[in-house]
């Protein structure tokens, strides 16, 4: 069974049908790139997978768990969405780092919140205990809290070293280049250990000389066996990094296959036209 199964995703904004029934599958450890002309619905698709938009119909199953079900969408609670969406990570085109936190805090803030929530629940169960027992349990919890928090910090430093920012831990986003900011954003997503990491044009907001450092990080993630979905206009990168390519056009998957098939032997005339125009501008 595939890790991710997406079936029949549709999405309308008002009267315009942006996604008209998207189907695809993705296996564990695979990299899927989504290409397609502007306005074809690539971003909308990623946003639906991450619950930033709610699709109208369709189903998303990840690792056997139903992430989205168009028939149940009214009933699902915010709390459940919050849990489900953590199965996926999303890196934005515009980084969206937290400007008031330094690099390290940008990465630790979310896992720290999650850990503290869990600890709070444990604290509640302790409050039922009495006397000596309670005191002991409290002390233990305090120790565990310190361990967990320092564990998160250690892990954050490790991921930041991995994306090549070990020397920028205390810098603020405004002091970093676009490429460095995007690598922080990648680290911030990685530390939550999503089963699938999504990228929406991770290099589109960068100066050309800065795209390389970000693409290199993504390539390393692939070598580590990470499952990823990448929306990109970097055709050369898409060709070399992906196991599978989807070409989207006007809200449908117009063609899909191995990068070889899509880039060297496209069948659909629309794909051919798109690649020809992409060649003019990108290469």
């Amino acid at each position: 069974m595939a890790l991710l199964e997406v079936t029949g995703i549709t999405k309308k904004f008002g009267e315009t049908e942006v996604l008209k029934g998207i189907n695809f599958e993705l296996d564990k450890g695979e990299v899927l790139t989504i290409i397609g002309s502007s306005g074809s619905g690539k971003t909308t698709l990623l946003r639906c997978l991450n619950y930033l938009e709610t699709a109208d119909t369709g189903k998303v199953v990840l690792d056997g768990e139903i992430i989205f079900d168009g028939n149940e969408k009214g009933k699902i609670k915010a709390e459940e969405i919050r849990r489900k969406r953590l199965n996926l990570g999303l890196v934005f085109q515009s980084f969206n780092l937290f400007p008031h936190y330094n690099v390290l805090k940008n990465v630790t803030v979310a896992p720290t919140m999650h850990a503290k929530e869990k600890l709070k629940e444990q604290k509640k169960s302790i409050s039922r205990l009495k006397g000596e027992q309670k005191k002991k349990a409290k002390e233990e919890l305090k120790k565990r809290k310190e361990e967990i928090l320092s564990g998160i910090e250690k892990e954050a430093k490790e991921v930041l070293v991995r994306v090549g920012l070990g020397d920028k831990l205390l810098s603020y986003p405004c002091e970093l280049s676009g490429g460095q900011q995007q690598r922080v954003a990648i680290a911030r997503a990685l530390i939550l250990k999503p089963k699938i990491l999504c990228f929406d044009e991770p290099t589109s907001a960068l100066d050309p000389e800065l795209t390389g450092e970000v693409l290199r990080v993504i390539r390393e993630l692939k070598n580590d066996g990470r499952t990823m979905i990448i929306v990109t206009h970097e055709m050369g990168f898409a060709k070399s990094v992906s196991d599978k390519v989807i070409f989207m056009s006007e809200g449908v998957v117009a063609e899909e296959g191995t990068p070889r098939k899509i880039f060297d032997n496209p069948e659909n005339p629309v794909t051919k036209a798109f690649l020809a125009s992409a060649k003019d501008s990108d290469f």
């Binding site: 991450n50 619950y51 930033l52 915010a78 919050r82 849990r83 969406r85 953590l86 996926l88 990570g89 999303l90 934005f92 515009s94 969206n96 780092l97 937290f98 400007p99 008031h100 803030v109 979310a110 919140m113 999650h114 911030r188 997503a189 939550l192």
Partner: peptide
């Protein structure tokens, strides 16, 4: 984008407002 970043990182609305939005 700040709200969306918080959302995909699994923050609650309260956490988002207090820790990310309000300071800014």
């Amino acid at each position: 984008g700040q709200y969306e970043a918080c959302a995909v990182l699994g923050m609650k609305r309260r956490q988002t407002f207090i820790h990310i939005i309000l300071p800014q």
